[in-house]
Amino acid sequence: MQIKDIAEILPLVELKCGQKGKIASVHTKNHEALKKLMAMGILPGIKINLIQKFPSYVFQLGQSQYAVDKELAECILVRIST
């Protein structure tokens, strides 16, 4: 992995509204949280588009939209597309 790539990976909570990218990885030690994220189809390589940050994190994932709270949004790492 190159340094350039690393700089482009951000947790979902640090994206700006409207920013797009692909999910780089899901980062959590909590099995329950991982299960929930998986159930939503939050898996590496899937395109993601942040729609709103407050009061909940809302994002477009493929053809679906999801809302999650801050704790779950922090687990999602996104590779920003330029």
Binding site: Q65, Y66, A67
Partner: peptide, 9 residues
Amino acid sequence: PSFYMEIPP
């Protein structure tokens, strides 16, 4: 609790 939900059209 944690919150996650699909937002249907």
